[in-house]
Amino acid sequence: MTAVALIDAPGVYDIPYDAYHGDPVEAGSLSSSGARKLMPPSCPAKFKLWLEEGQAPSHEFDIGHAAHKLVLGAGPELRVIEASDWRTKAAKEQRDEAHAEGAVPLLEHEFEKVAAMAAALKAHPVASTLLSPDRGKAEQTVVWRDEEFGVWRRALLDHLPHAVSGRRMIVADYKTTNSGAPGDVPRAMHGYGYHQQLDWYLAGVKALGLHGDREPAGVLIFQEKTKPYLVSIFQPNQQAMDIAHTRNRKALDIYRHCTTTNEWPGYGNDVMPLSLPGWAEWEHFDAEERGDFTITTPKGVPA
């Protein structure tokens, strides 16, 4: 991990990716990822384990990190492994060595794919403008202290726009995905908490007064990981952002309680009621109405 001086004051910091994820805040801080791990379907016990052991490397994350590097021009080093797959001992050793040194390992054909993704995004007129280095700086860490809970918070923004008076600040977050189709993105946003992440980023921007005199906005830029590497851009509606804000405030409350008491509960000790999912119940009731469960009396058997 890259060594950096511990942060003890609110502000914007340009620090290495691995230093950010190691928590550079002297008093300890909560990130958006951490906030989501505190809340259902996760729990504080899983959050604490994640803090202690970190996130295990995954190939899916490697592709996303590599795309961020080529699109944004910032982030971990990319290390191309001269192999066609990961099956050989040599390739696996080089992959593990790259991960241990904070780099992102890619096979040759994977690097070519990520480079094609970056080219497709830069050809998109809106996405390329939102992420342009002329408009702001990539991979910026913002640190602030929450006034209500007294908790230090941090965020690593894919792109932090320059503050310009009189113009609305738009914070764009770049995501690689299997599908950026309008019908699929809402489920992904709910499942991964992308709206909560945007609310977290905007809270930092506002806490540090980076937005000037107009309310900032957040947008999500999705890019598919298969040809033709389509790009789609969404702005979560107010209801989604209100839900995100409520969940983030609850996560801060949980974090404050757990750090104060040093208690990190799991799912609880009580016996909980268990029911089928709503869709399964409706499916059964519909089948009953169709007569699918009508019992017929075999011949010779008294009714």
Rank of each mutant, 00 (worst) to 15 (best):
A5N: 07
T259P: 00
T246H: 01
R187K: 13
G268E: 01
A27I: 08
S128F: 13
Y229P: 06
Y201E: 07
H245R: 14
Y174S: 09
V205W: 10
D134W: 13
V126H: 08
S31H: 02
F61H: 15
V126L: 15
G102Q: 07
H109F: 04
L252W: 02
E108D: 14
G166I: 10
E283Q: 12
H68V: 02
T2H: 14
P161T: 06
R87S: 14
G75Y: 04
D14A: 14
W86V: 07
K89L: 13
D8S: 15
L70H: 13
H159E: 06
E108G: 14
L252R: 06
R36Y: 03
K92R: 15
S33R: 12
M39G: 00
T261G: 04
L131V: 03
R87K: 15
Y255A: 07
V25K: 15
E26R: 15
L156M: 13
A90K: 14
H59T: 10
G193M: 07
L131C: 06
A66Y: 11
M117N: 10
L230G: 09
A188W: 05
A67W: 13
L210K: 02
P133W: 04
G183L: 15
H284V: 12
F222Q: 02
V114R: 06
E112T: 14
A138L: 07
M39K: 05
V12W: 07
V164C: 05
K299F: 09
A127I: 02
E60I: 11
E97P: 01
G204W: 04
E148I: 11
G11A: 08
G180W: 03
N237M: 02
C43T: 10
A244E: 08
I254E: 00
D292I: 12
L230N: 13
L156V: 03
R145C: 07
V126N: 02
L106T: 01
A98G: 00
E224C: 10
K122Q: 03
D62H: 12
P216G: 02
K48I: 12
R187E: 04
V219F: 06
V164T: 09
E82D: 07
A27N: 05
L202Q: 10
Q235H: 11
D253E: 15
G300T: 06
Y13G: 00
G300A: 02
Y255Q: 08
D213K: 10
A83H: 01
L131E: 03
A83V: 12
I7M: 03
T176R: 05
M117G: 03
P298D: 02
R168E: 13
P24E: 11
E139Y: 07
K122E: 03
A67S: 12
R95A: 12
Q239G: 01
R249E: 04
A280F: 11
A66F: 13
K69C: 12
D8C: 08
V171Y: 04
R167E: 11
L30G: 00
W264K: 01
V185H: 03
A100P: 05
G73E: 00
E139C: 05
E139N: 08
L72M: 08
Q197C: 03
V271A: 11
S32L: 12
E215Y: 08
M1T: 10
S232V: 08
H21S: 03
A217M: 09
